[in-house]
Design a protein around this nucleic acid. Structure first.
Lengths: 240, 240
DNA sequence: CGGCGTATTGAATCAAGTCAATGCGCGTGG
DNA sequence: CCACGCGCATTGACTTGATTCAATACGCCG
């Protein structure tokens, strides 16, 4: 099955996929070195489970070892916004650094495993491992850039272009982890995609069907085949 | 005149407005201490001038001493997105940490002054001033949270609510600098507001007129009086 | 096998966009 | 000093892409 990972193969996989130079994550940090300073706590996650809730005391960052999560911003009147999706090698919780409580929630969309990195210990480790501090800062900056890229997409693209852009982004991220960029399983519901893209789920559904009609992709519920990559890029408004 | 500052009064003003605890900026860092490690270069800015362009080599962070700027994300096909507005005490360029070139552009919307902080020197300073590293990290995290808050607004609010939310945010930020939250001058064109809020300038204009009709504010081009703060909050969809 | 959560599709509606005209202010130069 | 011109803002009329409401279908899990 696509994207499936096992706990046993975990270390090997993490080593196999160094992050790209310009988008350095945590995966290219020596985990064994990190362990000397930070007690790494493993957490099994199941679908629908919260890794942390908005409002809960901020204590740790989390490194996703396997699985797939969404981060959700919550307004006091109940409005909510999916602010991103995270997969293996991504880390979570950094947006809440400097606060007493988490600013958003992180929900697992399938079973997986997250490694908890207590923040006070991380601070100590950052002093001992200069590279770690740089990685953490760079990862925060990258998150800002990702957010800005989506603000650009949502502010300037129509529904079809947003969905096309989203699919290409998902494909790219899967490819980075060594999976196929041409055939993958979406891990989230239409509602989650729609919320993230500032659309309604019916619109996403319709657009997906239309991309299918145009033979740019083939869709069967959550299973996606990219049939015409450059066509999809053209629709997304990208320069080839 | 509202918001006007002079170079001479600069230091005193910066000292007068410590950032709120949960949104620590750079203003509460001892600038004189920082100067021991970082050569702070002053830059005068005039309206329309770029502090830095997207694509230009990344070398420095900037601390806004006076004036008002917008940050603009630029797509390769010409689409652009205003990702935020910055004023005194805010800093700029941090989103490009880890890159060879700036990821976005920063444009001054009025005359002002920015202090350039060369990044390599900042890294050194961070090692010598533990507090500085924490501030920088916290400020990056804060920027992520701000972006998420706007993603929430744009994803869940209609045009009227977005504009109301924007005006309240501007008012709050002016108030934090010691200016009136009830009477202020918008520094940006309708087009910039609209772009930031993922609307068209005609829509923003219409909404402003409507808020005026409803006696929530009075608008005269860029001059805004908040007449009914709680009414405006209600319109923004906030809990009182 | 049944039922619930999720996805698809259609038809009607509407909020915001588009196109276009007019108005206002400010800065420049006669 | 005033007239002119240009950039910005406002407003109206019309269009449209996305939403809303509603019905139906699919598929997984218990």
């Amino acid at each position: 099955m696509i994207m499936q990972t096992t706990v046993a193969s975990t270390r090997a996989q993490a080593a196999r996929y160094p992050a790209a130079e310009h988008e350095a994550g945590f995966t290219d940090i020596d985990i064994d070195l990190l362990r000397k300073y930070v007690p790494v706590l493993r957490h099994k996650l199941s679908a629908g489970q919260y890794l942390y809730h908005a409002g809960q005391p901020f204590q740790s960052l989390y490194l996703i070892n396997s699985g797939f999560l969404k981060t959700v911003e919550l307004a006091d009147d109940g409005r909510d916004q999916v602010t991103g999706f995270r997969m293996r090698g991504d880390f979570l919780g950094a947006e809440s650094i400097g606060l007493k409580t988490y600013a958003c929630g992180a929900v697992s969309l399938e079973s997986g495993e997250a490694w908890e990195l207590p923040y006070p210990a991380m601070l100590t480790a950052c002093r001992e491992i200069p590279e770690l501090q740089a990685r953490l800062t760079a990862a925060l900056a990258q998150e800002i850039r990702d957010d800005h890229a989506w603000m650009l997409a949502i502010g300037t693209l129509n529904a079809e272009q947003r969905v096309a852009t989203f699919l290409l982004d998902v494909a790219k991220r899967y490819a980075r982890l060594g999976y196929s960029a041409r055939h993958f399983m979406l891990r989230m519901r239409r509602t989650d995609m729609a919320n993230f893209l500032a659309l309604k789920h019916e619109t996403v559904s319709r657009v997906m069907s239309r991309l299918d009609d145009l033979r740019l992709i083939s869709v069967e519920r959550r299973e996606v085949h990219v049939l015409d990559d450059s066509g999809l890029r053209a629709m997304a408004g990208m320069r080839v």
